[in-house]
Design a protein around this nucleic acid. Sequence first.
DNA 1: CGAATACTTGATGAGACTCAAGCGCCGTGG
DNA 2: CCACGGCGCTTGAGTCTCATCAAGTATTCG
Lengths: 226, 226
Amino acid sequence: MSVSLAIPARQASMGALSPIPWSSPDAPAFEMTGTVLRLTADRRLYAEGDEARCFYKVVSGTIRTCQFLSDGRRQIDAFHQPGDFFGFEVGADHRLAAEAVTDCTVIAYRRRGLETMLIEDDRLNRWFFSHAMTCMARAREHSLLLGRASAAQKVAAFLLEMADRGESDTAVELPMGRQDVADYLGLTIETVSRTLSHMEKDKVIALPSPRRVMLKDRRTLRELNI
Amino acid sequence: MSVSLAIPARQASMGALSPIPWSSPDAPAFEMTGTVLRLTADRRLYAEGDEARCFYKVVSGTIRTCQFLSDGRRQIDAFHQPGDFFGFEVGADHRLAAEAVTDCTVIAYRRRGLETMLIEDDRLNRWFFSHAMTCMARAREHSLLLGRASAAQKVAAFLLEMADRGESDTAVELPMGRQDVADYLGLTIETVSRTLSHMEKDKVIALPSPRRVMLKDRRTLRELNI
DNA sequence: CGAATACTTGATGAGACTCAAGCGCCGTGG
DNA sequence: CCACGGCGCTTGAGTCTCATCAAGTATTCG
């Protein structure tokens, strides 16, 4: 199977611009300096097995974390959007690669710095702990989707997830192409395309353009849920 | 689809025997009193949605944590064996049900107690944090298996996992029946059975009895890896 | 011995993958 | 302005894997 995206092997440009404070609506308010990075679409931020010196927060754009299977297929674990954290590890190394889906801005935080802060700041500690547990719950959801859902269920769940995260309830702007969707859902690009076409024929969605999906019948989409 | 195991709806008998200290090879040495519970096979310890007042450690036997899908199927998230912790949640409720696969002894620890201890004991805190992250990594592995592996790959991975956890490298004693294996791997009972039979014909394994698997050719099993 | 349970085996079919074209959009260059 | 590719996406035909339905065997237990 082919992965359609040509990904340069070299590192993304690590242009250090300015340290900025870290804040998030649900994260405890505290100060930690990070480095702003800009990535062009399809740039790799780090690979599987790279030393996990930093973790990251998305400022703009979409990042995918993924792993490559021995047979050449690719599994996308998650799409990270503005405000999301990713790349935090227990072990020394990154278990997943991270790549830019679109042009992105991310902030890199030193992991060492965090670890000392966790000891000092109890609320921060709790927040990270609960963040880890939430990630785990999401991983379980995803595993259920991957393992047990039909193609239609997968695509429906994906659309609803993207709609939840987007601005509008009915108009979903997909930042990623069909191959990324397929690799996220454990399907082929053809099956994703066919399923979307089928949904459009059934007037469950409309597809004014490939990347633009209008949810016409949320109810039916939700009923497809596992 | 049917779930073959008849599970009584009522709670397992919560016979409080004696508070015992909690220790684990990799867990930091500290004292926390728990309550010993004995469960007979197929007893439910808690259901999805039950308030998560306790978390647990397996002393003997095997516990499965699982969730039930709207169409009646069941997804087993994990099998927990002696020494394993399970049932720890961020939110108020258990997201998965826990049931005894075999007759079991488990220790129940109050969650409240833990939370105060986490604040006081830094090492304990770290241990739990890393435990959560490890669980997440495992959830990802499992999701890869469920989503991308063939039936043969799933069964091979399962056998190797069970062998790793058991005493012997070559003789695996399965505590669970075929339906549990199927629900863990996202397969049907027939496919599991057929795959095992096929592996036996190929002399990759031997099946002196349904629950006893001899790994004859680990290499081939490992090559089936995703 | 009979019945229930657990497991195995066989036949068939549905759903998703593979391979192969075909379409449509966009940027480039004549 | 239009021809030409390239790329992303769609569509079609054939194949394969695994689920489903349906028996059949083995083991245990009353």
